[in-house]
Amino acid sequence: MFRHQGRGRNYIHNLKLASILSCVAGLVNITGVLSLNTLTTNVTGHFAFFSEQLILTNYKMALIYLWYIGFFLLGASVSGFIIELASKKKSHNAYIIPICIESIILISAGLLPVFIRIKPPVLTLISFALLFAMGLQNALVTKVSKSVVRTTHLTGLFTDLGIEISQLFFYKDVGERVKLKKSIFLKLMIIAGFFIGGILGGFMFQFFKLKTLLLPAVMLLFALWYDHILLQFYHLKRSLRHDE
């Protein structure tokens, strides 16, 4: 799912990646909206809010929106730096560090109310942390899938989906249509995952509040475990072939 890159990566790898991480993004997004009143999976809306607060001369709030944008950018930069550094060392485990950092952030934010009383300044810090985590995830997925999969925002996805649906009326070659339909299905899976995560997170938030963030953290750790188990299976399979 994460480990395969370049020629070793196929459609099924991207489909698995899209399904799990888009659901994670949906869960984090709805939890951020309900508990923090903040969009945490993209920065498009924050530019509009920044402009609004600037016009209203509410410079303190305008600055906070700039920080939101900055933390998402920082998360993407850190993720990109880690992956590039690992690629220079020929490591295939570059994805582990960003995923672990994201999981730690989600677990910490989810359990924070257990240890301290949550006040407005703390909520702002949690927003910063979640935007950083989503920047990490978006950059990681983009790098691993070679920009085929994006999981934290849907605007560009719906645009690409609309273009590809229109192309169905013009592409007549069988091979081209199969490729186009697979691409459309992948995008629909990302959208469905994001929606399912949002709906599930909305229901869970009524009972668990910020602890809802523990579920996406568990999903990320499960994805790492799943990748590790598959790797061990393939190693075992190869060793058995060599023994024959």
Score class of each variant (00 low, 15 high):
9 R>W: 00
214 L>G: 06
15 L>Y: 09
233 F>E: 06
154 L>C: 15
119 K>W: 01
34 L>A: 09
23 C>Q: 05
93 N>L: 13
169 F>N: 10
84 E>Q: 11
150 R>A: 14
106 L>H: 01
165 I>V: 15
128 F>I: 05
230 L>Q: 06
70 G>V: 08
37 N>S: 14
222 F>N: 01
238 R>V: 10
103 S>V: 06
78 V>F: 09
58 N>D: 15
81 F>G: 02
181 K>M: 15
159 T>I: 13
115 F>T: 02
153 H>L: 13
206 Q>N: 11
212 T>N: 08
158 F>P: 10
243 D>M: 12
79 S>C: 05
41 T>H: 08
27 L>T: 04
55 I>G: 09
183 S>E: 12
32 G>N: 09
40 T>Y: 11
134 M>A: 00
109 A>E: 02
134 M>K: 10
71 F>V: 05
183 S>C: 00
79 S>F: 03
84 E>C: 01
217 A>S: 12
85 L>A: 11
71 F>M: 14
136 L>A: 02
153 H>V: 10
205 F>P: 04
113 P>M: 08
132 F>K: 10
219 M>R: 00
221 L>K: 05
240 L>A: 07
240 L>Y: 03
126 I>V: 15
132 F>R: 08
173 D>H: 14
116 I>G: 04
13 H>I: 02
184 I>Q: 13
52 E>D: 01
239 S>Y: 03
134 M>I: 06
201 G>M: 12
83 I>D: 13
156 G>S: 07
214 L>I: 13
71 F>R: 06
191 I>S: 10
116 I>D: 01
71 F>Y: 13
151 T>N: 08
33 V>F: 07
153 H>S: 12
170 F>Y: 11
161 L>F: 14
199 I>T: 08
204 M>F: 14
176 E>P: 08
24 V>G: 08
38 T>P: 00
193 G>I: 11
123 L>H: 03
179 K>G: 09
71 F>N: 09
165 I>C: 12
27 L>I: 07
167 Q>M: 15
